[in-house]
Deep mutational scan, measured.
Amino acid sequence: HNGKLCKLKGIAPLQLGKCNITGWLLGNPECDSLLPARSWSYIVETPNSENGACYPGDLIDYEELREQLSSVSSLERFEIFPKESSWPNHTFNGVTVSCSHRGKSSFYRNLLWLTKKGDSYPKLTNSYVNNKGKEVLVLWGVHHPSSSDEQQSLYSNGNAYVSVASSNYNRRFTPEIAARPKVRDQHGRMNYYWTLLEPGDTIIFEATGNLIAPWYAFALSRGFESGIITSNASMHECNTKCQTPQGAINSNLPFQNIHPVTIGECPKYVRSTKLRMVTGLRNIPSIQYRGLFGAIAGFIEGGWTGMIDGWYGYHHQNEQGSGYAADQKSTQNAINGITNKVNSVIEKMNTQFTAVGKEFNNLEKRMENLNKKVDDGFLDIWTYNAELLVLLENERTLDFHDLNVKNLYEKVKSQLKNNAKEIGNGCFEFYHKCDNECMESVRNGTYDYPKYSEESKLNREKIDGVKLESMGVYQILAIYSTVASSLVLLVSLGAISFWMCSNGSLQCRICI
Rank of each mutant, 00 (worst) to 15 (best):
Y480C: 11
S441Y: 03
I346E: 02
N419A: 13
G445C: 04
L493M: 00
N283H: 08
D375Y: 09
H401W: 06
Y449D: 04
D402Q: 09
C242V: 09
P450M: 10
I335P: 01
Y431I: 07
T240E: 01
K421R: 12
Q415S: 15
Y480D: 10
K421D: 07
Q328A: 13
K413D: 06
G302T: 05
S322G: 07
A334C: 09
H316L: 00
V442S: 15
S414M: 10
N252H: 09
S231T: 15
L281E: 02
D464S: 14
E319N: 06
V466P: 04
T273A: 14
R276K: 12
L506C: 14
N336W: 11
S497A: 06
Q288K: 02
I496R: 00
G504F: 03
I263L: 14
N333L: 15
Y314A: 02
K358L: 09
R396M: 07
S441P: 03
H316D: 00
L391Y: 03
N404F: 03
W311Q: 01
S330L: 04
S286T: 11
L392C: 03
C266G: 04
H259W: 05
N444Q: 15
M307Y: 00
G302M: 06
L458N: 10
Y449T: 12
V261G: 01
H401N: 01
S272I: 09
F428N: 08
V412L: 13
N343E: 04
F353L: 11
Y452R: 05
G337N: 02
G321Y: 04
S251W: 06
S414C: 10
E469D: 10
A478C: 14
W311H: 03
N362F: 11
F430L: 09
G445W: 06
E422T: 08
S330P: 01
L468P: 03
N425Q: 08
N340Q: 12
V374F: 08
S492D: 15
K462N: 15
Q243L: 03
E319T: 05
C427R: 15
K372Q: 14
T446E: 05
E455K: 01
N333I: 14
K365G: 02
N361R: 03
T262W: 01
R443K: 15
